[in-house]
Nucleic acid binder design. Sequence first.
DNA 1: GGAAATCTACCTACTAGATGGTTGGCAATA
DNA 2: TATTGCCAACCATCTAGTAGGTAGATTTCC
Lengths: 189, 189
Amino acid sequence: MRDTRASLLSEAEILVRGRGYSGFSYADLAEAVGIRKASIHHHFRTKEELAGALIEAYEARYDAALDTIAGDTRDGVERIEAYGRLYLGGVEQGLGCLCAALAVELETLPEGLRRSIVRFFDKHIAWLAGVLEEGQIDGSVRRGLDPQAHARLIVAALEGALLLERFLAGPEGFARTLTALSEGLRPAA
Amino acid sequence: MRDTRASLLSEAEILVRGRGYSGFSYADLAEAVGIRKASIHHHFRTKEELAGALIEAYEARYDAALDTIAGDTRDGVERIEAYGRLYLGGVEQGLGCLCAALAVELETLPEGLRRSIVRFFDKHIAWLAGVLEEGQIDGSVRRGLDPQAHARLIVAALEGALLLERFLAGPEGFARTLTALSEGLRPAA
DNA sequence: GGAAATCTACCTACTAGATGGTTGGCAATA
DNA sequence: TATTGCCAACCATCTAGTAGGTAGATTTCC
């Protein structure tokens, strides 16, 4: 059934985001889903293949969210804030970013996964830079700032805030950081 | 000898920062230092004890650096930039932050280590908030901003930038992010 | 001063349990 | 009949940690 595969992806994502890639095992996952360890291999031949599918699904969800934001809002800073709120769910559930969890183990990560992670972040930076540039043209974003550099800053700040506020100040802490971040993007009053 | 213990701490830090806490083993560490696996237990009874010592040493180095910055510079934004440059070494060596590497595995982390990590970040946020407040008084930092919120933002942005630029754009990418970050703290011209 | 006791730093050899992964088979479905 | 989804049993390897010992330095006590 398609069902088991989806459960495996869902539960594996929770495990990786909660305890890291080499911090979770097939035994953990089998228990979470309620099948035997050997059966996981029927759906994902190796742990690496599972991780690849995890990133793919995660990325697809973000892609859809970026489209929604672009369709729903016009104002540049509002778009950035909406983007920032995508991370909020993680803080609320006490789960970090999937790609951040993998990135920590960069050195021992298979080449394929490494490339997927690079792609994930590069895409976000490019999207944000586009939002900022467009916002500068329509006047919803401060003119002086460098869109490329600020796009990097936004991803870094949100990734960092998710990492930290998960165990520091929770959703409120994250919200404060997001506010401080977006304030700096508004055109001078 | 004190020497072996120091080597163990140094090599273990490199391993954890490069591949995560559960991504490195006593076997890896033994090979890196050039002693047998069992001998590590003579210096650090358990892996958790080793991790604790790792954080302690890491924290002490940061404490010393914060004191140096406070002694060497007066200008608020300059202090923040100097603080940001503390992270640069990691990017150059391709090593993430020790506490970030541990934080990713939060869920399975022993309570004691968890507390140490909270203390590490809380201390940095408090120090940065103090720098910003002082800077607002002497006019070297923009008045409007909330010191607490921006202290959180600074730590988050730098932790995130270290995590990302390690494999994205390297030291140049990190420098761009740091510039974008500190620009927003300067008083309006 | 010198023997005895203790400590330090390391070793080989081992343990129990976990790790990702394999094999071969069984039942349901299409 | 062929495929799908799952399973028990197994495998080699790795995991942190233990047991017990050796050689050499340091301390203690007569």
